[in-house]
Design a protein around this nucleic acid. Structure first.
Lengths: 153, 153
DNA sequence: CCTGAAAGTTGCTAGCC
DNA sequence: GGCTAGCAACTTTCAGG
């Protein structure tokens, strides 16, 4: 299932990451190739799942999502049933933008984007009523210094 | 500078978030409108900055970025000069995907994506040699449970 | 604010080097 | 593997209700 990625592929990926709206011609010109080979490579990488969803980045604040929290979670329960319920709760809640299971004494970290502090509290109350967690610390973001989805290819 | 966003605009944004590659016709059909009005609204929201970069989401693991750390940073220095150097260090390092200034006793949180633990250490050493920080805790992600850039419109 | 149609670009395929 | 050529499909513009 692993596809070999060469230097040209990486250039294509970097170009797509930077601006997925540009045309094949433009990408081809910038990396010193031409339309068809670029298209074939993109197709292959799409099929291999290396290139995933194509999306737009929206201005969260302009759309009324003015609060962003990082939530550190410790739990005492580690059985499969609890974990299953916890994971599906996270996946089904759209305000959870990221969720990671961690190594170390903190078990999970979430990134939660909501309209305001009150909306966060609603989310938090709903979450802890659905699954029991041992300890929760919420870190409130005051300023988004940097935010990118680009990998440093 | 604020543009009024109505229900139709929100539907368009949701559609674009889900798949920015779909055609105007498709979007128009799904939201019960037609090409030109959809295009006019998109244009307006682009100009207002509500719609930002168009990009693709890449499979980090397939491309060799197998480690993801969340870094909690406490600092004792809060003067403008220090902060300026710290921020520009973060912005210039491509492995830093997110950086937030926080409220509370932890001052900053970073999300750092690197090839492996060793690459993280290289990053970490470089960062602390550039700017002095009081206390650093790195949380290693074992599993990316969820990751989306979509806002819950 | 929407409709419909025209014009220029682009995505994608096929056949040749 | 890459290149050239072509058509279908798309984006973008604009006159008119």
């Amino acid at each position: 299932m692993t596809v070999r990625i060469d230097a040209t592929d990486r250039k294509i990926l970097a170009a797509l990451q930077a601006d997925a709206a540009q045309s094949l011609d433009e990408i081809a010109r910038n990396i010193g190739s031409s339309k068809t080979p670029v298209w074939n490579r993109i197709k292959k990488m799409r099929e291999a799942g290396i290139i995933g969803q194509q999306t737009v980045l929206l201005d969260a604040e302009a759309l009324g999502f003015e609060a962003c929290f990082f939530v550190l979670i410790r739990t005492s329960e580690h059985d499969a049933d609890w974990q299953g319920r916890f994971l599906s709760a996270l996946k089904s809640r759209p305000e959870v933008q990221e969720a990671h299971r961690l190594a170390g004494d903190i078990d999970y970290i979430l990134k939660v984007r909501v309209q305001n502090a009150r909306a966060y509290d609603t989310f938090y109350q709903a979450l802890i009523s659905e699954v029991k967690v041992h300890n929760v610390t919420a870190l409130l973001s005051m300023e988004e210094i940097k935010s990118t989805v680009a990998l440093p290819l």
